[in-house]
């Protein structure tokens, strides 16, 4: 069944016609063309589709869009402000924390949620919290270094 719903995404209200069984991931990518959120496994394992819902990281592939009408959704496109990348985004760039880039938006969402919760996490906590995001290129080291650099206040964004 089709239904028209309103979703608040990156502080903007979108009115969109969806199928009731459609996931947030599919609505973001196929209806709103917010394609920064990636479709990896489509069953919650890889973390590439992570978004923030009311500030908490969740899997967009496991959320039905129709359940989210009263929630605030933030996607990777919403992490920068007025065209300026967030500190974490800058740190990922300066640490070359990606190769193919497919996992990056999910990683950034997890890292953003982590630092919102705890601005000075230990390395082991960073590793633990990013454990739900799979990267098949970098070996994770640069990603963890990038997050750590933000906690230490040095983003090296040259």
């Amino acid at each position: 069944m089709m239904e028209t719903i309103s979703l608040t995404i990156n502080n903007e209200v979108h009115t969109v016609l969806i199928e009731t069984r459609q996931t947030l991931l599919s609505v973001l990518r196929d209806k709103l063309f917010l394609c920064g959120t990636k479709n990896g496994c489509n069953h919650g394992v890889c973390g590439a589709c992570n978004v923030l819902v009311d500030g908490k990281a969740m899997r967009a592939c496991l959320l039905l869009a129709i359940t989210l009408q009263e929630r605030e959704i933030t996607t990777i496109e919403g992490l920068s402000e007025n065209g300026e990348l967030s500190l974490l985004q800058k740190a990922f760039a300066s640490h070359q924390a990606f190769q193919c880039g497919f996992c990056t938006s999910g990683m950034l969402i997890s890292a953003t949620a982590l630092l919102d919760h705890d601005s000075t996490p230990s390395i082991s906590k960073i590793r633990h919290e990013l454990g739900g995001n799979i990267c098949r290129c970098t070996g994770y080291v640069q990603i963890i270094d990038a997050v750590k650099s933000v906690c230490e206040g040095k983003t090296d964004c040259t």
């Binding site: 009731t20 069984r21 996931t23 489509n42 919650g44 592939c61 496991l62 959320l63 039905l64």
Partner: peptide
């Protein structure tokens, strides 16, 4: 409920109830 199992099953076509 949270959908973490149910929506995953819907995504692969294992369940498609008439009413959710």
């Amino acid at each position: 409920a949270g959908g973490a199992t149910l929506v995953a099953m819907m995504n692969v076509g294992l369940v498609e109830p008439e009413l959710l």
